[in-house]
């Protein structure tokens, strides 16, 4: 990593080392290479409990890659990930969910062959070979309640391909919430949403935080994000370039440069 220490507000120290206990989720020197391309380069950060952390960066900065590594979609090339102080580097996706970390997908991935209600119910099914939670309707009530919470109460019987863009996002959220996560990672929720929808979804996130969930919200569009989050981490080209409150971030020259006149 080649960045020198900067002295203005919101400065980034070159030496960021974290203890595994520094937060609910700690990433240390996370690196991911695909062949010759380094998508994530020596990234370190900690997520504090019950905060809403923003993970911001221009397209291609490595945001999704970072979180694919953390959520177990693929292992990092180097570095460590700690959850609740335990080393979970390279743990597969389903295990991370069992530990309490859930995620949504930026490119929506509903189960196309079943209704909205069934999608959520599938998420509620336990990771056991012999279970009949759904056969006699046990999880049905829970699924309906979840759908109501995310605003899909009227769409229970619809198929995913009938949903609007906002509806698909809600479905992603509903499925993720079904696993009762402690830490929820939302990947680019605001893309393609209208202003009112952004507000509704933000309100939902606030609700979740009130109920005890920690959130990481990833996005490249800062507008919808800055009002929602407590703290932000900005990355560009796989490297961390700024960290701090939304105000600090907004005025950080490195951030402005990275966005090159984009919306800040």
């Amino acid at each position: 990593m080649s960045s020198e220490a900067r002295t203005d507000a919101g400065s980034v120290e070159t030496d960021r080392s974290f203890d595994p206990d520094d937060g609910l989720l700690v990433a240390e020197d996370l690196t991911k290479r695909f062949g010759g391309l380094t998508a994530v380069d020596d990234l370190s950060f900690a997520v504090r409990e019950r905060e809403i952390l923003g993970f911001i960066g221009p397209n291609g900065a490595g945001k999704s890659t970072t979180f694919n590594c953390i959520t177990g979609r693929y292992p990092p090339t180097a570095g460590e990930v700690y959850y609740r102080g335990e080393r979970v580097t390279g743990a597969p996706a389903y295990e991370m969910v069992t530990r309490g970390l859930a995620r949504t997908f930026q490119a929506f991935r509903p189960f196309e062959d079943r209704t909205v209600l069934e999608n959520v119910r599938t998420a509620l099914v336990p990771n056991e070979l012999f279970s009949t939670s759904g056969l006699r309707g046990e999880t049905r009530a829970e699924a309906i309640e979840l759908c109501d919470r995310v605003g899909l109460g009227d769409a229970l019987r619809r198929m995913p391909d009938e949903l609007s863009h906002a509806g698909m996002l809600r479905l992603e959220l509903g499925r993720a919430m079904a696993t009762e996560p402690e830490l929820l990672l939302v990947d680019e929720p605001f893309a393609g949403l209208a202003g009112s929808e952004i507000e509704q979804v933000s309100a939902l996130f606030e609700e979740l935080r009130e109920a005890g969930t920690t959130l990481i919200v990833v996005d490249h569009n800062m507008r919808g994000l800055l009002r929602l989050i407590d703290r932000a981490i900005v990355i560009s080209f796989g490297e961390l370039i700024a960290e701090g409150t939304p105000e600090e971030i907004k005025s950080d020259p490195a951030v402005q440069e990275a966005y090159l006149g984009g919306e800040v």
Binding site: A93, V97, R109, D113
Partner: peptide
Amino acid sequence: VVFTAIRADEVALAATGK
């Protein structure tokens, strides 16, 4: 339900804890 979810989208299924 899990079997058919594997068929539909294995990655999404893993993301629901199975």
